[in-house]
Write a protein that binds this DNA or RNA. Structure first.
Length: 434
RNA sequence: GGAGAGAUGGCAGAGUGGUCGAAUGCAGCGGUUUGCUAAAUCGCCGUACGGGUAACCGUACCGAGGGUUCGAAUCCCUCUCUCUCCGCCA
């Protein structure tokens, strides 16, 4: 959510910033400014009435004590009438405020000035590259073939259980998934200074609104129903990312300056409806309704937001480097950025069996967009309450990492060499061919 | 799921219809005193929104939302959460 005062005082700047996303978001600014003026005018009117009413009420109390009943009665009558007018005004103010709030909640963040302007994913510049696409002396298999051959994943039975877009890891496949989760958390905790947290996998609507998922993207999440009672429908949502619970840990709190930065790292499964998404229903692990992910969340002083964004991207890149995987890092252009982000880097890992790059991490600084929605603040050096920057980054998503890993480290016989760093977790060096 | 207790400022804890935005204590900030530390003493010490160049002023907030009343932290209703006990359960 943007600052209403900024919209009021620097409407042109806000409009120009939103226009860079090239989605037409800036048109709502006019309406908000107009409604905001209406709101303040009515607010002044009602507060003046309240002020006079409060004075009269006090006077009534004094008159009653003095026994001047008839004087009190006439004042009571006046207060009654005034209250009527106040409640009419308040109703109008409430309606205006609801409309403003709804518009504000649906308005995306303004891109940071360093973000390249562009319309779509084709215009995302590459900022870094590590290694090269691996050259094979044989025709590399894709992950579906490999996983079926080695019995790592049972695609067919997964869809029997849950429909398309779900995975059933078996044997060494399940072990590899679990090993990756442990490896990632240990790396971020031991070497990158994060605190491990294990959050709920179901969160309430306030959390979803806090991170910007609601109200605009409700159709992308699974909402629960408790029992068969319709009245309890939808109080909790399956997390689409650990960001949903973890970024909200300090919602409605005022943190001390010395509490910052908060650096959290969490594993959760991620549940996504993927309604209308391209690639949905295709076989494999690239786009699924449930996948595992280790997420990094930083709550930091605004002065440190962008420095920590670079740091966080490096943390995610290290994962791939340690696992011996080729990747490229891109910065998303204004037209391709997510709703709440002011600046986003994507990391794409090379999957030789697909002959394509797969997005395994997205690292964003949402600045104070989310903290404002959550009303999460900190006391700065002057003792003033301010909104911290909140950053989130995948470190990394697992299903696609799994794909890149098996496709990159496959041998001619189909066996898969386990990267050094994973061997202690796997308690093996090679996943055998059969 | 059943029964009970509770929710007040950073914390502790008063306050059961009328200058209560809220006593008091602790913590915090500033001053005085003191050889240092400590103690003592005085003052300040919530948040949000709005008005004003500003000093400042107004409004709202005692878990949330309604209601009664001229007036609610205080009375009534609903909800949420926390704690204790019982039941069920991984």
């Amino acid at each position: 959510m943007l600052d209403i005062r900024m919209i009021r005082e620097r409407a042109d700047e806000v409009r120009a910033g939103l226009a860079k996303r090239q989605k037409g978001d800036e048109v709502a600014v006019f309406r908000i400014v107009e409604l905001d003026g209406e709101r303040r005018q009515k607010l002044v009117e009602s507060e003046e009435l309240k002020s006079r009413r409060n004075m009269e009420s006090k006077a009534i109390g004094i008159l009653m004590k003095e026994g001047r009943k008839e004087d009190a009665e006439s004042k009571k009558e006046w207060v009654r009438e005034t209250n009527q007018r106040i409640s009419e005004l308040e109703k109008e103010i409430g309606e205006v405020e609801m409309e403003i709030r709804d518009l504000m909640l649906r308005m995306p963040n303004i891109p940071h000035e360093s973000v390249p302007v562009g319309r779509s994913a084709e215009e995302n510049p590459e900022v870094r590259r590590y290694g090269h696409p691996k050259v094979f002396e044989f025709q590399p298999r894709n992950h579906i073939e490999l996983c079926e051959k080695l019995g790592l994943i049972d695609f067919k039975r997964a869809s029997k259980l849950s429909g398309s877009g779900f995975l059933l890891y078996m044997g060494y496949g399940a072990r590899l998934e679990r090993a990756l989760i442990s490896f990632l958390i240990d790396l971020h905790v031991n070497e990158h200074g994060y605190m491990e947290v294990s959050p709920p996998f179901l969160v309430n609507r306030e959390c979803m609104e806090g991170v910007g998922q609601f109200p605009k993207f409700q159709d992308q999440v699974y909402i629960t129903q408790e029992g068969v009672d319709e009245s309890t429908l939808g109080s909790l949502c399956l997390v689409p990312t650990a960001e949903a619970p973890v970024a909200n840990i300090h919602r409605e709190e005022i943190l001390n300056l010395s509490d910052l930065p908060k650096r959290y790292c969490a594993y959760t499964p991620c549940f996504r409806a993927e309604a209308g998404a391209a690639g949905l229903g295709t076989r494999g692990m690239i786009r699924v309704h449930q996948f595992d992910k280790v997420e990094m969340i930083n709550v930091v002083h605004p002065d440190e937001g962008y420095g920590l964004l670079e740091d966080m991207v490096r943390c995610a890149e290290r994962v791939l480097e340690i696992l011996g995987l080729h990747y490229r890092t891109i910065v998303l252009c204004t037209g391709d950025m997510g709703f709440g982000s002011a600046k986003t880097y994507d990391i794409e890992v090379w999957a030789p069996g697909q002959n394509q790059y797969l997005e395994v991490s997205s690292c964003s600084n949402c600045e104070d967009f989310q903290s404002r929605r959550m009303n999460m603040r900190f006391k700065d050096a002057e003792g003033k309450n301010r909104f911290p920057h909140i950053l989130n980054g995948s470190g990394t998503a697992l299903a696609r990492l799994f794909v890149a890993l098996v496709e990159t480290h496959q041998q001619v016989d189909g066996s898969i060499v386990i990267p050094e760093a994973l061997r202690s977790y796997m308690r093996m060096d090679v996943i055998p061919a059969s």
